[in-house]
Simulated scan of single mutants.
Amino acid sequence: MAVSWPPLREELRGIEPYGAPQLDVPVQLNVNENPYGPSPECAADIARSVAEAAATLNRYPDREFTELRTALAAYLAKDTVHGVTPEQVWAANGSNEVMLQLLQAFGGPGRVALSFAPTYSMYPEYARDTVTEWVVGHRETDFALDLDHARDLVKEKQPSVVLLPSPNNPTGTALPPEAVTALCEAAGDGIVVVDEAYGEFRRTGVPSAVELLPRHRNLVVTRTMSKAFAAAGLRLGYLAADPAICDAIRVVRLPYHLSSVTQATALAALRHAPELLGRVEELRAERDSTVDWLRARGLTVADSDANFALFGTFPDRHAVWQGLLDRGVLIRETGPDGWLRVSIGTAEEMDAFKNALMEEL
């Protein structure tokens, strides 16, 4: 019997790899990047740090990345009165690898990973790649979490991993602390992951789940330097959790998974945190004004605590997406049918988006 080549796992055949369109257009507002790059001073510090690391590239990096974990713990500590220790911190090449390691450690055959749609489209891929059963519940029409439904589904399915983005991607919806607590309690010994990739963009008064870590040993809070830190090219994600969870991840991590160059670059970026995060308030204000502008034109827009806005609805969203692209503006065709997502860029980029959308509509 003929065998298809290459001998790919059957469940992977015909699947397109994940990825947003990478197109060379004047205004790129499709992957939620921070539009403001590092200053010359920050870039120079990174260059010096990388040069120092380059002199020892014949040696393996610190596989425990102790200095980096200490710096990340100090950064996270500002979001909780309880403090964060280096032993509570883990990092990897982007929050994608952090999530995959969590599924490698706590998912697997015979186990369940669970989330609530619409949600980040990579989550089911983490489950698939680790041969973990994927279960998805639903969100309300305003994309908030129906806590009774969520609690009941967790108790019924008894997942080993619950994935809860807050703010949610692609909707921008944040989770209240009581929802995190309720699901941590409902999950029992299951791990509850609150994905705060966009956490720095949350509105004033919206707390981080980091504050809840002392109350729930099964809580994991993940972050990234790709968004608010303006370091998407660095590929550095991290988490805070009970030290026992960090120890468990060591079993599945690849040897020396964080290079010396990555560690040096991340440390330099953290030294410039006030500068790199300095535009967050500006981006929040631009987000809120964009949401107001879209609503004033009769469109429905999800409340957002992130650096993007999900808006709609359109009978043919692809036609609208294509119309904007034809005018040099790239946004994202994602989320429920009829909706589009725009990342928040500079004021000039958002003007270009608004003008293109008005022409298209």
Score class of each variant (00 low, 15 high):
Asp152Ser: 15
His138Ser: 15
Met122Ile: 15
Tyr126His: 01
Val112His: 02
Ala55Tyr: 04
Thr80Pro: 15
Leu147Arg: 14
Thr70Trp: 09
Thr132Ser: 03
Thr66Cys: 13
Asp146Cys: 05
Ala144His: 10
Ala127Val: 02
Phe116Arg: 02
Arg111Pro: 12
Pro109Phe: 12
Ala54Val: 12
Ala117Cys: 09
Ala105Met: 09
Leu102Met: 11
Ala92Arg: 03
Pro118Ser: 07
Phe65Ala: 12
Ala91Met: 01
His138Cys: 15
Ser121Met: 15
Lys78Gly: 12
Asp129Thr: 08
Gly107Ala: 06
Val112Arg: 05
His82Asn: 14
Gly108Ile: 06
Leu102Asp: 00
Ala144Trp: 11
Arg151Thr: 06
Ala77Val: 02
Ala144Ile: 02
His138Gly: 15
Glu133Ile: 10
Asp152Val: 03
Asp152Glu: 15
Ala91Leu: 00
Ala150Arg: 04
Val131Met: 05
Leu76Pro: 04
Met122Arg: 12
Ala92Pro: 02
Thr56Met: 14
Glu67Cys: 13
His82Arg: 11
Lys157Gln: 08
Ala105Asp: 08
Thr141Leu: 13
Thr119Ser: 07
Ala53Ile: 03
Ala55Cys: 09
Gly107Ile: 06
Ala113Ser: 07
His82Ala: 10
Pro118Met: 05
Asp148Arg: 15
Glu97Asn: 00
His82Cys: 14
Gln88Ile: 00
Glu67Val: 11
His149Asn: 07
Ala92Tyr: 07
Ala150Lys: 03
Leu103Tyr: 04
Val112Thr: 07
Val98Pro: 09
Ala150Ile: 00
Ala91Val: 00
Pro118Thr: 04
Asp142Ser: 12
Thr119Asn: 04
